[in-house]
Every structure is written in C-alpha cells, then in structure tokens.
Design a protein around this nucleic acid. Structure first.
Length: 500
RNA sequence: GAUCCACUAGCUCAGUCGGUAGAGCAUCUGACUUUUAAUCAGGGGGUCUGGGGUUCGAAUCCCCAGUGGAUCACCA
C-alpha cells in the first residue's frame, strides 16, 4: 500500500472496511504508537503447546503471539482466537483486568491484526483452554479484511495467486505443505543413511540434456551466451559418478516449456539419485523403500485413499514388462510381432490412430502402452523393459536382440511417479544413441535429445555400472496428501498475470 | 492450441420468464462480565470481470476479450 493511499482523497475512494482500519492506524501513529516500528517481541509459548501442556501450565503466565482470526465481544468481556503456526488459542480479556484504556484499545482491534498477549493460562467455564489477557501489544495492523472464516477461501484463482490468504484461512492447506516438507526431509534422511551425498548441479545449461523436453531459454549478457534452464540434472550427476562420488542425489527444480495440467507445472521438483555398482533392480528397492517410508510416516499406513481409489503402498510393488502389460490390455503380442511393419499394422488394426509410416517396433509398443495401459495402472506398478528408441541413456537388456532396455517407470493412480534405469556407460553406444536422437531431431522431432559430446567424453574415462532413479516429488506429495492437482502442492504455481 | 463451464458486496453464495440487486459471514452504531459459526436491535456497502450488440428495458439473450477450472492435445 503506497503513501498516496493515506491522503484524504484516496482514503475516500477506499472500501469501507479498509478505510476504518486505515483510520485506526493513523490514530495510533498520531499517538506515537506506530505498530510497524516494533522490531521484536518475546514469545514463550505456541498455541498448541499451551493446550497440550495445560496440566503443567495452568495458572502460569505465558506470552503468545499470532493473528486475530475471530472475536466474540460480550461488553465488558471479550474473546479472541489467536492463530500462530501451530494452531489457535483463545484469549480472554476483561475490562477490570486490563483497565479502561487498554481494554478499549483491545476492542478497537480488527480481524487479521497481529498481536502479542501475555497472561495466565486457565480454562473457561465452558472448558476452553485460554490465556487471560494481562497485557498485550499490537505487532502489525491488518489493513484489509480477511476472507470469511467459516467457508474459507474457495476461489482457486485467488487461492493460488494470494497463497498467504489461503494459508491464513484454510488450515488444511498449511497441513499439506507441512507434509510436503516432511516428505522431502524423510527422503533426505533415508538417502543420507544409505551413504548418498547431496549435491547441486547447474540450472543454467548450455545443452538442455537428460530428458526429451522443450527447454526455457535465457541469455547471459556478459558472455553473450544463450542458456537453457535445465530439463534434468541427469548428465551432470553421472559426471559426478565418473568422478568417483559413487552415490549422489539432488532434489531440485526442473523446467520444461510444455503444457500445463493437473499433473504438470512448468517448474517442478525432482529427486534424482545415482548409485555406482547398482542397476535398475537396486533402484526398485530404493523406490519401494522411499515410497513406503514416506507413506507410513505421512499416512500412518500403507493403505491409502487417493481421490476415491484405495491404494496399497505395501512393498513389494507389482512388476510387469511393457510387452506383458500391452498384451494384457490389448491382446497385441509384441513378442510375436517381429518387424516394424507387423507392429504398425497390428496396432492400426487395434484402433491406434497415432501410428505413422516411419514408426519402429519399439515406438509402436510404447505408444500402445501410453494409449491403452498407462491410465489403468492404479496400484503401484513397476513397468519394466522399455524400447531402446525412447531410452537413449539406458543399458540394453540382455536377450532382447537390442530392442529393450533395463529401465522402469513406476505408475500409481494411472500416473508416472518415477523413472529409473541401468545407466548406459558404453561411450561408443552412447555416441550412437545421441546420433540417433539427432537424426530424429533432423526429421522434425523437436523433443529428441540433444547430443552432449562432453558427457560422452566423460564416459570415455570410465563410468562404473550405475543405477539411476528420478522421482517426481510433487506427484508423490499429491499422492500422499490426496490432492487432485499439482497446484495444490506448490505454494505458487505458475499463473498468467491478470492484466496480461 | 481446442472444447466445455465459471466470474454478482471484503469472503461464501442466491438471483425465476429480460423489468433498476439479495442472503450469511465480515463491517459500522447500540446492548451484553465465560463466549466459541456468541446472541439481540438497527445501519452502510455493488463499474453484476471488461468491451460491444439486441431491446422501451440486460447480472440475465448474442458477439469479442480477460482470468480461472475441467477435459483433450502436448508432456519419450
């Protein structure tokens, strides 16, 4: 709120409620009681602590601080609900205890004002644990009316744009984000226990590698250099494996310049980890451990509800090959369909319209999976053995004629939650795969991966056999907090400006 | 990018057949010394998202735009 708004002509144009609050603030300032000048206050107890430790605290004097969320005036007595980060505590104020001036000033407070209260812990006649107001301080004036307390803030537009209001009046929102923080802490704890080093790698990339996705572009002025926001930290993390760190992980933001949905935000948080001397089976064990640990801690059970679906997060998770899954759901058997031509014809006969003339056996298989199977994988399932065409950084699976790779994605509630593989460490093969990706790019596939010759050079020094895993943190949080949209687990989801 | 839906007081929502706008909470005035969605009495508050059109008359019907939501496309 800028200085202009304190002048009289602006005052008159303000909504009634804001005008009243501004008048009160100006009155305080003119009396030398500017609340914004205070720099700190002594807080001895949290709201939930007063309630939890009532037996010990009854009769003791405590200092609490928070936002006034509700008031119930009774004349010479009044009640207020004070909200801090732990919850709500009731403040009981009496005229004869505060004195005329202090009580009148207390009655002048508005919903949303931030106050500190010092007083005695006691239980009211109706049993409510409260703080008897002996003295209080206004810590900050709230100049705008709060959203309604009973219904909360419903308008999704407002909730996402002004998340602070959402957090003030919708307690379950705070709960979701506290759980998000806990999930990330649990993951760090488990990986630290397993001897992983947490690392950070560049967000500004000269080559946006490691995933097939369109990047955001930016520019460095001093170097006169176009840069890309990373779409994945994968190639950097594997360089660290080459460097001998053996077990590394990074939890951080990826940026993909693509469509948005309930499952996609342009920036999102990924866990990526790499373990030398492991493979994709090692990564299945870690995935199960991480999911299970988080689920038990957050939900208290392996049996959870997600949007009306009963999900069992009890390890071990179901494992099924892509060929098997497609056979099960479409009847098409890619063990029998041998050539690209046969695969295309069979899929077309099955009604798959996306099939184009150039598609290979593996691409058809993958398209069949995405079209007919993916959304049906409700219970946690490791979908294994992906076609080589869609897995340019992955080791070939022995005995598949070079068609399939040692890779899995984990699906829950019909969504991809993670992606892992036995990392390709053959520099010759890797160079060929990049060349293949380049051919696809040249043929018009702008999502094909960009060759990274420096990465291949790193492989030439020798990378041990390595298992790698990526888990979408936002989707995991959605799953464990039963939120329907990724925007509900991001404090500030990407939004169009309103006057855009 | 496509389709459908929504947008009314600070917030949550009604608004019939096209006839000058309603409620609850919040706010203001008054009453009230243990309330808790406090209660009681009274008052104020609106660019009906924006622009255009049809009409004697539009929150309401039509067109365009904005923002959001859902679905699809995209996302190996």
């Amino acid at each position: 709120m800028n200085k202009d708004r304190e002048t009289s002509e602006h005052r008159d144009s303000l909504p009634e409620q804001t005008r009243h609050r501004l008048d009160k603030l100006n009155k305080l300032r003119s009396e030398g009681k500017d609340p914004y000048r205070l720099t700190r206050c002594e807080v001895t107890h949290q709201a939930s602590g007063v309630v939890a430790d009532f037996e010990q605290l009854e009769g003791e004097t405590v200092s609490v601080a928070g936002r006034i969320m509700a008031r119930r005036g009774m004349g010479k007595v009044s009640f207020a609900d004070l909200l801090d980060r732990t919850g709500t505590i009731q403040v009981f104020s009496r005229l004869d205890q505060l004195g005329q001036d202090s009580y009148e000033a207390w009655q002048e407070l508005d919903l949303g004002d931030l106050v500190a209260v010092t007083g005695q812990v006691f239980r009211t006649r109706t049993g409510e644990i409260s703080v008897r107001n002996f003295s209080w301080t206004l810590l900050a004036k709230s100049l705008r009316p709060l959203p309604e307390k009973f219904h909360g803030l419903r308008d999704t537009d407002l909730r996402y744009r002004k998340r602070y209001l959402d957090l003030m009046v919708n307690p379950e929102v705070r709960d979701t984000f506290e759980k998000r923080g806990r999930i990330i802490r649990l993951i760090r704890g488990e990986l630290d226990r397993r001897g992983y080093l947490e690392v950070e790698t560049p967000l500004l990339n000269t080559i946006a590698g490691g995933a097939a996705a369109r990047p955001f572009t930016t520019h460095h002025n001093a170097l006169d250099l176009d840069l890309f926001l990373r779409v994945s930290p994968e190639l950097y993390l594997k360089r660290l494996i080459v460097g001998g760190l053996e077990r590394v992980y990074e939890i951080g933001r990826n940026f993909r310049n693509e469509g948005m949905s309930t499952r996609h935000n342009p920036e999102f948080t990924m866990l990526e980890l790499y373990q030398a001397y492991g493979d994709y089976h090692t990564m299945m064990d870690i995935t199960e451990a991480l999911f299970s640990i988080c689920c038990l801690d957050i939900c208290g059970s392996h049996d959870i509800d997600y949007q009306g679906m009963a999900i069992s997060m009890e390890p071990p998770f179901c494992r099924m090959s892509m060929i098997e899954a497609v056979r099960l759901h479409t009847g098409l058997d890619f063990d029998v369909l041998k050539t690209d031509e046969e695969a295309r014809e069979a899929a077309k006969a099955c009604g798959l319209e996306q099939v184009t003339v150039n598609m290979t056996w593996g691409e058809v298989l993958n398209t069949c999976f995405e079209t007919y199977v993916e959304e049906k994988l409700i219970q946690p399932t490791y979908l294994i053995d992906y076609p080589i065409e869609v897995s340019p950084l992955t080791k070939i699976k022995a005995g598949t004629g070079g068609r399939l790779t040692e890779r899995f994605e984990i699906f829950v509630v019909g969504r991809e939650h993670g992606n892992a593989y036995s990392e390709l460490n053959d520099p010759f093969d890797q160079r060929d795969r990049f060349a293949d990706q380049q051919r696809r790019r040249d043929a018009g596939d702008d999502e094909a991966q960009l060759p990274d010759e420096d990465f291949v050079e790193a492989l030439e020094y020798g990378m041990p056999p390595t298992g790698g895993l990526g888990i979408g943190i936002d989707r995991l949080v959605m799953l464990l907090t039963n939120q329907p949209s990724i925007r509900d687990v991001l404090f500030f989801p990407t939004m169009k400006p309103q006057d855009g």
